[in-house]
Design a protein around this nucleic acid. Structure first.
Length: 286
DNA sequence: CCCTCTGTTGGATT
DNA sequence: CAATCCAACAGAGG
């Protein structure tokens, strides 16, 4: 479920509860959750033993790049992916939370549990020294930290692909998921199908401003402890995501919906006008 | 109760 | 390169 704001909220939570604490034991509930490499496939399990050297180590400050976390503990560096439904929760007693996959027992008596109903998330142990590189592998600059301006953003998106699809490519820019890509495009007034190479400087500037604004809003909306998601009964806090057929919050036009790259995409047909259809070759449109 | 559909991720396959 | 499939499960709706 998480997008960048939820992952950042988890980073802060882990920092608050674990940094400086000692890891006294590891409870492997689901060996498939600890994987030898990044994968959404639980079958790539079999790395639980690689956690043993971390026991007795002290937690260092977790880092975040895009939607990935890196978490040092002793001589081990844990690369953490939350997938769709991954959470870390703290419990002080013996209670094992629902969907618990892995528990890290701290020297203050608390346990940090990795829970993940859908099992797309994983923990990948690395040597601590290579942690940052491992987490960063294959990722573009972080969407929140990079603070790219219009021209810099345009330079990273030199492609004819539709902007919505390109925004989800973590190798170009790390951190935007489906919801925030949809919302950022709405804020920027760009239609999701607009080919990247047809967006003008003005459009890139609007998008460069919209992305951090959207992500920071998302972060501000999260409580410090409670991380809530759409499916948990909260009111839909988004402008167009999940609002197909409902009026655009700006102009009242019914929000449109289509599937792009396998993901539900929504937009306002008026605030985000469709790109002009372009022919393969440049010619006079007679 | 049962069936179908949808899904906030991302790697593998075609 | 790009579209599709799929991992495993919850929740909503018919």
């Amino acid at each position: 479920m998480p997008e960048l704001p939820e992952v950042e909220a988890h980073r802060r939570l882990l920092d608050r509860y674990a940094t400086g604490r000692r890891l006294v034991d590891v409870v492997v509930v689901d060996p498939g959750a600890v994987r030898p490499r990044r994968s959404t496939r639980p079958s790539a399990g079999g790395a639980a033993a690689a956690l043993r050297p971390a026991i007795g180590g002290v937690f260092g400050p977790p880092l975040r790049i895009g939607k990935r976390l890196g978490w040092p503990v002793g001589e081990v560096g844990l690369e953490v992916h939350l997938g769709m439904t991954g959470h870390w929760v703290r419990r002080s007693g013996d209670e094992v939370p629902r969907f618990a996959r892995l528990g890290l027992r701290l020297d203050d008596g608390a346990t940090l549990w990795f829970t993940d109903a859908r099992r797309f998330g994983c923990v990948v142990p690395h040597p601590r020294d290579g942690l940052r590189d491992a987490v960063q592998a294959g990722l573009g600059p972080d969407a929140l930290d990079a603070a790219l301006d219009g021209p810099a953003l345009a330079a990273r998106f030199r492609t004819p692909r539709p902007i919505k699809v390109a925004l989800l490519d973590q190798a170009r820019l790390a951190g935007l998921g489906n919801i925030h890509a949809v919302e950022a495009l709405f804020l920027a007034g760009l239609h999701p199908d607009t080919p990247c190479d047809s967006i003008d400087a003005e459009g890139w500037s609007r998008l460069a401003a919209a992305i951090p604004r959207q992500l920071r809003d998302g972060l501000a909306d999260l409580g410090d402890d409670e991380i809530r998601y759409l499916s948990e009964g909260a009111e839909n806090p988004f402008r167009v995501y999940g609002r197909a057929g409902l009026p655009c919050p700006v102009c009242g036009t019914p929000v449109a919906r289509a599937v792009r790259a396998g993901r539900t995409t929504t937009w306002c047909p008026r605030c985000q006008p469709a790109p002009r259809v372009r022919r393969g070759a440049r010619r006079r449109s007679g």
